[in-house]
Design a protein around this nucleic acid. Sequence first.
DNA 1: ATTAGCACTCCACCAAGACGAGTGCCAATC
DNA 2: GATTGGCACTCGTCTTGGTGGAGTGCTAAT
Lengths: 351, 351
Amino acid sequence: MSNSTRDLSERSLQLLKTLVERYISDGQPVGSRALSKDSELNLSPATIRNVMADLEDLGLIHSPHTSAGRVPTVSGYRLFVDSLLTVKPLDAKDITRLYQGLSERDDTSNVIGVASRLLAELTKMAGVVTLPRRELVCLRHIEFLPLSHKRVLVIFVTNEQEVHNKVIHTGKVFSAAELQQAGSYLNSIYCGRSLVAVREAVLKELQDDQERMNQAMLDAIKMAQLTFESGDEKDDYVLTGETNLMGFSELSDRDHLKKLFDAFSQKRDVIHLLDQSLKAEGVQIFIGEESGYQAFDHCSLVTSSYSVNDEVVGVLGIIGPTRMAYEKIIPFVDVTAKLLGAALNPKTTTP
Amino acid sequence: MSNSTRDLSERSLQLLKTLVERYISDGQPVGSRALSKDSELNLSPATIRNVMADLEDLGLIHSPHTSAGRVPTVSGYRLFVDSLLTVKPLDAKDITRLYQGLSERDDTSNVIGVASRLLAELTKMAGVVTLPRRELVCLRHIEFLPLSHKRVLVIFVTNEQEVHNKVIHTGKVFSAAELQQAGSYLNSIYCGRSLVAVREAVLKELQDDQERMNQAMLDAIKMAQLTFESGDEKDDYVLTGETNLMGFSELSDRDHLKKLFDAFSQKRDVIHLLDQSLKAEGVQIFIGEESGYQAFDHCSLVTSSYSVNDEVVGVLGIIGPTRMAYEKIIPFVDVTAKLLGAALNPKTTTP
DNA sequence: ATTAGCACTCCACCAAGACGAGTGCCAATC
DNA sequence: GATTGGCACTCGTCTTGGTGGAGTGCTAAT
């Protein structure tokens, strides 16, 4: 990278830091005089101007027009969050709210939705949480019901209480009794295994010699195959607080706003973006155009994967304007991810 | 009503009609000269001005400021849609799209979602469809699964293939076998009856003397009661194309837009509004403030109930700016409602 | 290396004026 | 009595020009 912290004097970095902080807090381009007062180093505005010129040459800050102050560029923000930022401890009452919402698992409502709402509510931005990955979810129960015209309704329950359903087309008509039998057969052999494992096992069965199975078992296996064949059920997420984004002046442009909301309902781009955080541990940040999607040009995403039993199962985060209080948001997202992971962990469930 | 068509000369009505049409088509306040040219009656602008003054006195039109043309008020629109409007036949390709989307029932995807998307796509506004009323849905299958801590996961299937689930708290711990038995018992006696009927029957059983039932039956009934007790599952709707609304200049105000989208995610007000159309047959229209909800102040809703087997089961419609092409939208919503009703009717399903 | 001073640029704000669209009213006309 | 042409008037929009403030870059002095 061209802009490592090595390229710059300690002083320049210090000034960049205060500049970014100042800009984040009041949203106006910050000039040399303001910066001179804000920074602890006692420097005159003139000196500051020299430094600012350097920072501008490096592409870290930029002037909207000649007689305005400076504003951080994307690279400026990037350097700031990577090396300059001093995270602030979480607000005590935010912690309480998070803890209340996530620690005691609410019966019927889903934790994912609660997490998303908490993210949005406490940050005043948009909160997003992906549903846990299928690879990690276990089959708990499966059931078939006959529909008309060789169609069968499959209902399967995963983990504790998530219910999924799907309609499959079978080659022939089955009676309710036959379907029930198939269900119990599959339950008896596949319960407790992950969906991915089930899919693999089923495929293996079909490839192996099928002599040792009777017709009923074969039918059951075939239905299981239809149910769990590849990407039938796309990854999904719960997004809340989108309307919070309409309050920010930097996103006020109707066109941008429309693009953003279109992306939200399209889901595709958002999912792709969140997927990138699935591989990484800890908090990840996409600033402005870094995301690669035009819709998010003036937005930043702060995300973190969350894990159950030390395995990453999903991603959560917030979406807001590029100019956001990273020093508070980053630890906030981090903690939320950890709390959600804990809430999802069946072993830590309180009695 | 003060503004019946009787209060006004044929000519005034004719002029109001062309004024509204003109305003709808180009969005500018329309002045006397423009109106004089647009209307077939050969009248000078001066005459038109006199008529306009009358219409303004009656509160049907209004001037944004002294030297602008006139714009219809809510009452003006109301009179227009009630008595003046000449509906236009549907666009041929719209009909085809509707028919393709709704007539052949797509296997796994839900018709409600398709209908909503079609409404939004073809009108370039927001489309909304309520899920069919519970009173009309029949229980097809019910099933209980044990969870931890005296909780039970209830899965029930209604109609053809809609799957619902709910977690209930039972007084004691049941084994999987007991729960299965309860399920088959309930299936055997309540299958095919509407959810409302089931709820009533269950309550009756509990009030009657319980001597003739064994404990297992009683437990089953109690669980059914928990499952179907009052408003457990709120009415819901599918809303699509919200982002289309961001394009309209009359809704460009950020504050209004936020209120509107907040109402969408809140759902409550929208549901209440749609419920009002449930009672009425045919197309209903809410213009601007008529809805009574501030969020919809500059919007109109064109809705219609849809029926299966001559029974009203839901509502569908579009949401757009007050200034919309009612003469096209009204028949469009009407036809969509009828096609959706037909698509939901199991008897007319094609083999 | 830092700083004070200075000329310069650019935006935001305001006032004034021209223009155009449209009205309301009055007197003339059919 | 309804309709019309004419005319003065109002109001919003657009343009123009001017002012003040904020902030810069450069240069020369420290």
